[in-house]
């Protein structure tokens, strides 16, 4: 859970950009990557260069981000297989499509990793609160992110206790043990949910997240963000 740890990092150029604008830019970037035609390698290259520049400007550890890429392996396998078969057949996807998925999915993942590093999950969620004011779903996301840390820690303690006692020989029993742990985790989570609910009510919670001070978005920042979005749109539209 290294993404959520409190990182003490040197301020970089990226920190001069409003978090809300950074979130907007990453969304525009990911959308552009997803919309490029297959095999538009010049444009893929331009966007990749832009991403690399952001990593350098933000002094984001590239190695840390690259370690997230294996998440994509099963899908690459599937796409590769499909492409290989299609290349023998007459219809379906070819090499260009396959490579575009490979490159595009990786770039998109790296852009999201960048956002998880700077501005980071908490500021990202705050930006979402700004864009979707009063949204119940965003309130839910913010609280979920807070309690993932707590409940994952609880799950890890249970897993450690189980693994220290070894696994039953039969797969069926192993599944049953895992299921019981999940059930136990549910009961504990339910109790925690009740206590959290009490603590929130005790401080006057009425079901709506109280709105804090909303920092106005500076127009220079907004203009820069919109320009970036326009540039992304242009990359997609202009061949």
């Amino acid at each position: 859970m290294s993404q959520t740890s409190e990182r003490i990092r040197e301020p970089s150029v990226l920190d001069r950009v409003d978090d809300r604008i950074k979130v907007l830019c990453v969304v525009a970037f990911v959308a552009a990557v997803a919309l490029l035609p297959d095999g538009a390698w010049t444009r893929f290259g331009a966007l990749a260069g832009l991403l690399l520049l952001a990593y350098l400007l933000g002094r984001v550890p590239l190695l840390w981000a690259l370690k997230r890429l294996p998440l994509l392996l099963p899908v690459f396998l599937l796409v590769g297989l499909s492409a290989w078969i299609s290349s023998r057949g007459e219809s379906g996807m070819g090499t260009d499509r396959f490579l575009s998925v490979l490159v595009g999915a990786s770039m998109s993942l790296l852009a999201l990793a960048l956002m998880a590093y700077n501005p980071g999950p908490d500021n990202m969620l705050r930006a979402l609160q700004f864009y979707f004011r009063g949204s119940f779903l965003v309130t839910l996301l913010t609280m979920t992110h807070r309690y993932i840390v707590v409940i994952v820690a609880e799950a890890r303690r249970m897993l450690r206790a189980r693994d220290s006692r070894g696994q039953p020989p039969r797969v069926l029993d192993r599944a049953r043990v895992a299921g019981s742990m999940v059930g136990y985790l549910f009961v504990r989570s339910l109790q925690r949910a009740e206590r959290v609910g009490h603590a929130m009510e005790a401080r006057g919670f009425t079901g709506v997240y109280p709105r804090g001070r909303v920092r106005p978005l500076r127009w220079t920042q907004l203009a820069a963000g919109l320009t970036f979005c326009a540039a992304m749109a242009a990359v997609v539209v202009i061949p």
Partner: peptide, 18 residues
Amino acid sequence: EPRDAPLMAVMAAFIFAA
């Protein structure tokens, strides 16, 4: 009800952990 919001959030965290 007010206390259903934290309930669902903790339950989402539970599913994530499960």
